[in-house]
Amino acid sequence: MDRAIAIEVSRLCKTYDAHKAVDDLSFQVYAGEIFGLLGPNGAGKSTTLRTLITLLHPTSGTASVFGHDTVREADTVRMLIGYVPQERAIDRFLTGREHLQLLGALYHLTKEEAAKRIAELLKLVELESHADRPAKTYSGGMKRKLDIACGLLPNPKVLFLDEPTLGLDVQSRLRIWEYVRMLKARGMTIVMTTNYLDEADQLCDRLAIIDGGKIKTLGAPAELKIALGGDIVSLTLKETDRMAGLESALKNQPAIKAVRLTAKGLDIRVESPEKALPVILESANRLGCSIEFIQYNRPRLDDVFIAHTGRRIQDDIPKEE
């Protein structure tokens, strides 16, 4: 399948003194997808993102947005992108509307164009009734919404979100996720960094797990989980003497990837439980194995992360800059 490429990163390196923040990174982002950069703090996500938004010059390698080089054609790239920074990049003394008006002027919109777009955006992020209050009176979630409205003001082809839900309450997080899905539905390409596994899992079409400045693995969340070897159905049997018979009966079934004997039953790796469970139950019935207990485990993104980096995402490595 040939898909239009929105972003192309090729052998990107960024070195600070002796420290390699990003080390030979290559990946592509397809137009219209939500692409996640997942990794612990200091893994190189932000450095990659800041290169893509033209704020950092790579030490070597290139990055391009819709074919435009982020260094040589920085101004063209800046016209195509919107950026939502990680910290609340809000001027607490300005009102929400003033933030958007300032950006309107920086994108060289006329007053009328800007006013129209600002009204739409305030409605979209539900800040209409707070638009004329200074941002210092906003809650964390409201600031984030304003941040996103600011990122959307240029009507960008690609929106970059740096840790979009960091430190937000559950309600606001779900709201932000909704916006992101809606923007994708409108055809926008979205690149986000996150160190929340559930966020990457729920939101991203594809993601790259980054650690120590390198991509450890890349793919759709479901693919990455399947690549670990699929879901596991654990059976505990009442009569252990029939285990071997069941094992050989299941081994050659197409829905089943692997079977392993355990002390009191079987661990069965399956590709999809919908196909495999009926087969397992039917075979058990046929062989007269009575089942005491069935447990079904779907590998989570945590497992993917641990498998590729050798540690949990919460174990932050010290940030160097």
Partner: peptide, 16 residues
């Protein structure tokens, strides 16, 4: 302060 809270980055990511 703009540099510290990221506002400067936001400004610099615009085509100015």
């Amino acid at each position: 302060f703009d540099k510290e809270n990221g506002f400067l980055e936001r400004l610099m990511s615009t085509p100015i």
